[in-house]
């Protein structure tokens, strides 16, 4: 008797877990990605080559890491435009510190701390002074990118201790450490957002801010923590990138905020909050990376790349919206 009922409940929850994990949007993303893979393989013999696939994976690491923080913003119906600038600034800062003679761990620790401070500043102005996130984070983007340029005199900086390059140089199986690190972050945060009380608050907040306040969520400080996570993710992305290219470039991550936002929306986040998952957004990042890789290996002219990407972006989200409407009218 006892075991039977247990089994029954286990079964349903397992099925439901699967269903939840691949909530329709994620499935849609996977289909899109598989479709892209098939088309790319047909179009270009070079695509399926290991070197190419690995390079795609490497190229999407910063976006995927930044996406984690961005998902939290999107869940609350907001966004962070400063991530590109923060990534460039912290990527150069960590280099400058090492060149100044700080040990690697100290340089990284200080840089992370600076990332935290940047996030706190963003969050403070948004949550406490009520300046719109667009203004605060765009302003912070300009400030940090400028700071990166000032810090390096406008040039890339080189000459770090080779141990710092471990993220790009050390391989486990066929993939460099940075890719594994990204996978780890994505999986961990996906679980955290699904399962923990702390991160579920983001869904409550985005779904109905007023009701969230009434149910005792400390909205202001949670907002600040959100922008802090976003900035810290951008900082980690900056450090990882610097480790891979063994350089600090003030122009790194230009336009990355829009790429990640687009990936988030393709991957099922709603711009008005309450909906989205880390995995979904990650799949969005993968999809966009595949598209851009395809354009490169098929040597589509630089001039045309924007047109193709834009069309695919709008088409992908449109298809999903149409399917969604179908489903809701069927109900």
């Amino acid at each position: 008797m006892e075991t039977k009922t247990l089994e029954a409940t286990n079964k349903t929850t397992f099925g439901e877990k699967l269903k939840k994990l691949f909530a329709v949007r994620e499935l849609f993303m996977i289909i899109l990605i598989v479709l892209a893979l098939v088309v790319l393989t047909i179009l270009s013999p070079n695509f399926l080559k290991r070197a190419n696939l690995v390079s795609v994976m490497i190229s999407l690491v910063p976006n995927a890491i930044i996406a984690i923080g961005m998902v939290m913003c999107l869940l609350e119906g907001t966004f962070d435009l400063s991530v590109g600038g923060v990534m460039a600034f912290t990527g150069t800062l960590v280099g400058v510190l090492m060149l100044k003679g700080f040990p690697i761990w100290a340089a990284i620790a200080i840089t992370l701390l600076v990332g935290v401070v940047i996030g706190l500043i963003n969050g403070f102005f948004i949550a406490k002074i009520h300046v719109h996130p667009l203004i605060v984070t765009y302003g912070m983007q300009r400030i940090t990118r400028s700071a990166a340029t000032i810090l390096t005199g406008g040039y890339s900086i080189y000459g770090f201790d080779s141990k710092f390059g471990v993220m790009g140089s050390k391989y486990i199986w066929v993939l460099p450490l940075m890719v594994w690190f990204m996978f780890l972050l994505v999986v961990v945060f996906d679980i955290l957002f699904r399962k923990t009380k702390y991160f579920r608050q983001a869904y409550y907040l985005g779904s109905n801010p007023n009701a969230a306040l009434l149910s005792g969520i400390k909205v202001d400080s949670y907002k600040i923590q959100t922008f802090t996570l976003a900035a810290v993710c951008a900082t980690i992305a900056g450090i990882v990138l610097a480790s891979r290219i063994m350089a600090g470039t003030p122009t790194a991550g230009d336009g990355i905020e829009m790429q990640v936002l687009a990936a988030g929306v393709i991957g099922g986040c709603s711009m008005s909050g309450g909906e989205g998952t880390v995995i979904g957004c990650f799949l969005g990042v993968v999809f966009l990376a595949l598209i851009s890789n395809a354009l490169t290996i098929m040597s589509v002219s630089q001039y045309w790349q924007g047109v193709v990407t834009g069309v695919i972006l709008i088409a992908a989200v449109s298809i999903d919206m149409i399917l969604k409407q179908r489903r809701s009218t069927l109900k």
Binding site: R200, N208, G274
Partner: peptide, 15 residues
């Protein structure tokens, strides 16, 4: 003060 995107259970036991 409903959270429309969340499940019924998450609404009842909000936060």
């Amino acid at each position: 003060s409903i959270f429309p995107h969340m499940t019924v259970a998450e609404n009842v036991m909000a936060n």
